[in-house]
């Protein structure tokens, strides 16, 4: 595997506050990585250091094995920062054409329009006359203009409506299918879960988890099987199984807490228990998230 991003022991101190504390990870070609964390967790600071916009207090970042400030790197990356600001008094078409001239192999105007959903009339507008959503679309186009191999998006969907958001993620999936590497930060848990194939979870400047979404969920969330039964059921029968951690009755339902819901179902069926309305509940990443943050707090 080709490692495209290499973060080594990255630390950034602002005055005495550690915004990022000893973060290390590497990202392989073709990965879609979500940098997830609550506000103030150090996501933007980490991204700024990855892009060479901030000097780390300690540690280093390498993109394609080089300093991120190298021109060769900049030709291969596309970036959308938070709060897109655009050069004013020029038309959208002009700014896109200008940016196309920066890169060796830019995407065509038609391709960019298709990918970002920019409209004809928007192309002839001056940038200062655009609405927030339109500015984001232009920002997205500027990120894609150089046909980059590696894409960075800092909180990309903030301020996008549902349609815009859907188009954005559809395009991201299309780019991912072409083998592009994509890194985005978000505090929308659902987004990280839906889109990424790997989540790097930040909390108070530290990386507290780094795994595929399912694994994070599996490790850190409770799963349960619950059902209604009129008969009294021997709790022991379940508790003696290794995969069951707890059994309790609440509001007429029996809940079996487990890390293997399939095995619980099998037990129910092979024992031929007289139960109805079986529900299998898997924890969502939201739960994993707050749990992670809580456990971390307990430790520290």
């Amino acid at each position: 595997m080709e490692s495209i991003v290499e973060i080594k022991k990255l630390t950034k101190k602002f005055k005495k506050e550690k915004a990022v504390d000893n973060a290390s990870f590497s990202i392989q070609k073709g990965e879609i990585v979500a940098i997830l964390g609550p506000n103030g967790a150090g996501k933007t600071t980490t991204m700024s250091m990855m892009l060479g916009l901030l000097h780390p207090t300690e540690g280093e970042t390498l993109l394609f094995g080089m300093d991120p400030r190298e021109r060769a790197v900049r030709e291969k990356i596309g970036v959308m920062l938070q709060e897109v600001s655009l050069m004013d008094t020029i038309k959208v078409r002009e700014i896109i054409q200008l940016f196309r001239s920066y890169y060796p192999n830019p995407l065509s105007m038609e391709e960019l329009i298709r990918l970002t959903g920019l409209k004809k009339e928007e192309l002839n507008k001056r940038t200062e006359k655009l609405s927030g959503g339109q500015k984001r679309r232009v920002g997205f186009a500027l990120a894609l203009v150089g046909n980059p191999d590696l894409l960075f998006f800092d909180e990309p969907t903030v301020g996008m409506d549902i349609t815009a958001r859907k188009l954005f993620w559809d395009t991201i999936n299309e780019l991912a299918a072409k083998g592009k590497t994509i890194i985005f930060s978000t505090h929308y848990l659902q987004e990280a879960d839906d889109i990424s194939d790997r989540i790097i979870l930040f909390h108070e400047g530290r990386v507290i988890a780094d795994a595929e979404p399912d694994l994070i969920k599996k490790q850190l969330t409770k799963q349960s099987v619950s059902f209604i039964t009129e008969h009294s059921i021997s709790e022991k029968m379940f508790l003696q199984e290794a995969f069951v951690t707890d059994v309790f009755k609440k509001d007429e339902r029996v809940h079996v807490i487990t890390d293997d819901t399939d095995a619980v179902l099998q037990t129910i069926f092979t024992s031929n228990l007289d139960v109805s309305d079986i529900r299998v509940e898997k924890g969502r990443l939201d739960d994993a998230f707050s749990q992670l943050v809580d456990t971390e707090k307990d430790v520290s």
Binding site: L51, G52, L53, R71, R74, V79, L81, E83, S85, M87
Partner: peptide
Amino acid sequence: VEERSQGWTRYMRVTPLS
């Protein structure tokens, strides 16, 4: 000043334009 305060100058640093 405008371009710096609006973050545009910062954005230019991630493009190939030096």
